[in-house]
Design a protein around this nucleic acid. Sequence first.
DNA 1: GAGCACTGC
Length: 844
Amino acid sequence: MSPRELPIYELEDELVRQLSAQPRLILQAPTGSGKSTQVPQILLDRGLLADGEVVILQPRRLAARLLAKRVAFERSARLGEEVGYQIRFEKVASEQTRIRFVTEGILLRQLLQDAELRGVAAILFDEFHERHLYGDITLARALSLQETTRSDLKLVVMSATLESDKLEKYLAPCPVLTSSGRMHPVAIEYLTRPVRAEDYPVWDLAADELERITPETGGDVLVFMPGKFEITRTISAIRASAVSNRFVVLPLYSELAAAEQDAALAAYDKRKVIVATNVAETSLTIDGVRVVIDSGLARIARFDPRRGINTLLIEKISRASADQRAGRAGRTAPGRCLRLWTEREHLERAPQELPEVKRLDLAEVVLTLKASGIEDARSFRWFEMPEPKALENAEQLLDDLGAIAAGKLTSLGKRMLAFPVHPRYARMLLAAEEQKCVRAVALIAALTQGRHLLRRAQDKELRAAREDFFGSEDESDLFVLLRGFRFAQTNNFDPRRCARLGINAGAAREASQLWEQFLAIARDEGLDVSERESAPGAIARCVLAAFPDQVAVRLDQGTLRCALVHHRRGVLARESVVQRARLLTASEIREVESSDGERQVLLTLATAIKEEWLRELFPEAVAEKTELTYDPALRRVIGRAVTLFHDLVLDEKKSERVPTAEAAAILVREVIAGNCPLKKWDHGVEQWIARLNFAAAAFPELELPPIAENERALLIEQVCQGATRYKEIKERPVAPVLRLWLSAGQQAALDQVAPERIKLPNERSAKIIYEPGQPPTIRARIQDLYGVSDRLTIGNGRVPLRIEVLAPDHRPIQITDDLTIFWRENYPKIKQELQRKYPKHEWK
DNA sequence: GAGCACTGC
């Protein structure tokens, strides 16, 4: 087919007419319309570029490269001459280049160098509907530029699906052109009745649906799942199904080794089923797919500005994203898409994914804005304004890092801008100059970007090999990365040798390029990049300078639980080598959700630190910002009880059986009575229960309650979270603060009463903070909170509210999903009983 | 004994 036959050419004259008359255009055109390859050529050939170039923004490197190749081919030009591309580490473009495909970050960096964008006649924003952060920012900057000094700059926003109303208003005055696509129809089917995930796991559902439709369909099948765990389960379910021998079944996700990814894309004699994550939604296209089975779920990254942590939770995808997934069935022929939810549920889903600007950490963006003279990010011309709290947070971090002071860019901040990384890592590199370890720190900065260097070690063999190689390391997980990299480097990035240690050779190679880039910039900035032996602790101090707000202190020896600066809690990653240090700083903090809905805040890439470094680095801030103090006496007691319980359960051979079992008995009773808020520990609950039952039989005199079948579920939900919460609650002052999320109606009702403080049923009062929000759907219930035993009442009526109970220092106590708050002073009771029974034993 | 989507400078 000749390019001239592509649907986009139906719009050619109109496009030229509009862009000659004024400089903005929205082009709504689906996949297959030819917009990415043809519009740049139309602009060039119809003389709309004067003697400048057209820059096409692409969200992915691969797309930038392939599109450039395609266009060069169509024009019989050599790549890098008339048509070129530029992505990180790769510039195939020259003085003659008139059509340049670039990734979004490249243009943002270019803007930093030359705010006028000289030589650029037009910018095309391709795939704008994906709403990447840099795309949003670049568009806003380009608009301002056009309105001030570059009225000749043409801007075309292109997208497959678009909230074009909002965009039209933003770009106004701006005409919209709509083109048709060239895709095959995809028949969409929904479940006829809703399914509860607890009753019918999504992987079983997917396998059953596959079984059902196999006889009616041909071609390959693509199944979308949120992550690796679900993919593995789906594959087992399909292999156990009646149609298993009809298909080759293959996993596909980004972390998979390259060879296995290739296997998923290869052709086979049989039909194939690919079970994939979101990689298959946008990044990879797979030929021959005729059927899509969509779980409707994805793990979605967000930055929670209120808690200052990243989250990665399983969420329902938007309608737009579901359509994108469905489209994967219609690339080569008419297709079918089975959605594993009902049509009614579909209507309740969000129309689009939340754009990145409302989801991600904005520190880097705010820093670049400051550098461009936009001092107050709130006044920036955002397409969509980010959360005020997220901006506040970004400013706070930049201030902590010394990049800004009193809202203004500092000289340190200016130097940080030279490095194309998150400001934390830029700060780390500059700290390295003082500590004389620039080379090593630049490598660390390179190794923590992009794809993971080390695959998660699951099988025993790999863990053993790792242990042999990294065994002695216990200061920092970052040092493990350094060693892993050195191994890859000395083995010439050989994939097979690297695989033995679970090292991703491709990631190592990319890191080495990035390392060179950082070193080159450091050299330009006048940093000393010579190879030298660094003093002990030098690198760790640099890490601390970059992550001062992620300092954590271990709460006890028995568990991996940590308290973090800014009143946060987390669990040190099991695979961390930093198991001995009491104080550490985590380079990554992320809340993750397991398949059973359990959430935890994981601290990864830890580095052991010393308290005196904190004092050196932040003399004035230590007391305020790092909550390192705690009541050691109390902690010992609590730690003791938990350790004892732990011992009993995990090791029946402990000599001090009786008090151990006794402590366990008391705790278990409390758990079963629902008084003790227990949560899943790391340990196998089933094994726990078996051992408890063993203990119950072994020590009848203790009246240890055996765990009956019906109590099992309760226990599983409530397995001990450990002692830390007791301490937390015990130390909490009495007057609570209630934070209320109210609908407009509720707000109006409350305004009549206008209470500043609210009366709780036990006559105590609490201060209220109002938050505007969604009409809450969950009924709040407070149980045994400071003696409150029933639903909260306001004014005359009971108001369902979303409630979070905060201590006066604004630390949340606990919110559970059904918003039931458990609290009882358990510990003293246990202690009392122990003291009474074993007076000789010292119970602190 | 188990817990992590995807890009990009």
